[in-house]
């Protein structure tokens, strides 16, 4: 059985079984990535376009490597320096790329919902690589995959997400994903950065980071996204670091081995101190490594879906 969806737009649309299928497939790819020859010929007949309307290093390299490890052909597009600056619309841009016989589109866009809009207008499979403040599904999958590697089945496990929940597509996708896998989720941070009524998504809310650390087994620490804050939501970065930042001392004071994660890029010394980010508990680089395997799995499982329709 492969996936129940044609696109990966958000975790919200996935069945729990889909997530397990992606994990099982990623297990295989992770093994492929540890071989001398880190490549399989599965997608020799597939061309993928990476369309990035917003900056990215990790996600974009990760997607591109995943595609190359699957033997797919890759074209990259970034909005800066393209015809977008001449006023071309999103659908025109994508349709022109698809006219060159591209089978799959990976898109990052600053507008929430852009991939859904695109899915209504084009035939190719779309993978959402982050849309505004909505979803970042492959990040949530690789986060959960990395947690599963450390903790086993996530059912009943306690995961805290700390930081800028309001502007974070990683937070929302993580919440959907972890809920589907049966984990308990808590969000923590300053009240101004936690959306009202977020309890409706089935998560606990905590404003005291120390208490949140005590409750959880994993802390997924998120970046403060100053670029998305149109009015100040806390006084200074220094104040944020003082009250909500996580450092090694706080981790040492806990009576347990807390797993520290961060989707990157880290604002060192703000949400996470350097000694915490580089500590043994941190699995930040495992996340990056797993990202390639997860993206290979998603691309592989969605490939060939366009001929189906």
């Amino acid at each position: 059985m492969s996936l129940s969806v044609k696109h990966l737009l958000g975790i919200k649309e996935l069945q729990t079984e889909d997530i397990h299928t992606i994990f099982r497939t990623a297990d295989n790819f992770k093994q492929v990535l540890q071989r001398q020859i880190k490549k399989v010929p599965a997608l020799r007949d597939t061309t993928v376009a990476n369309i990035f309307f917003e900056n990215s290093t990790r996600t974009r390299i990760s997607f591109e490597l995943a595609q190359k490890r699957l033997s797919a052909d890759v074209v990259n597009f970034s909005a800066s320096g393209s015809s977008v600056s001449k006023g071309e619309t999103l659908i025109d841009t994508v349709n022109n790329i698809l006219a060159m016989k591209v089978d799959m589109v990976v898109m990052r866009h600053s507008a929430s919902g852009a991939p859904w809009f695109l899915a209504n207008h084009i035939d190719a499979s779309i993978i959402n690589a982050g849309d505004g403040i909505n979803e970042h599904p492959t990040q949530a999958l690789l986060d959960a995959f990395s947690m599963r590697e450390k903790l086993g089945d996530l059912k009943g496990k306690r995961i805290t997400i700390i930081g800028d929940i309001m502007h974070s597509r990683v937070a929302l996708s993580n919440i959907y994903c972890l809920n589907k896998l049966g984990a308990e989720v808590m969000v923590a941070g300053p009240p101004t950065l936690i959306p009202k009524h977020i309890e409706g998504l089935g998560v606990k809310v905590e404003y005291d980071v120390k208490k949140a650390l005590q409750w959880g087994e994993v802390a997924n620490v998120l970046r403060i996204q100053l670029e998305r804050q149109h009015k100040p939501l806390f006084s200074t970065l220094r104040e944020y670091a003082l009250y909500y930042g996580i450092n090694k001392q706080m981790l040492d004071d806990l009576q347990k081995e807390m797993i520290i994660m961060h989707p990157g890029p880290i604002n060192r010394g703000v949400e996470l101190s350097s000694d915490a980010a580089d500590s043994k508990q941190s699995i930040i680089l495992d996340q990056v490594e797993n990202g390639v395997a997860i993206r290979m799995a998603v691309i592989y499982l969605l490939s060939g879906k366009s001929e189906l329709e």
């Binding site: 295989n28 399989v40 010929p41 007949d45 699957l70 592989y300 060939g304 001929e307 189906l308």
Partner: peptide
């Protein structure tokens, strides 16, 4: 051998390895 098949995109279902 899933990723090495010559019919990866010929059937209706993609094979889970």
């Amino acid at each position: 051998i899933t990723f090495y098949r010559d019919d990866v995109h010929q059937g209706n279902e993609i094979h889970v390895p």
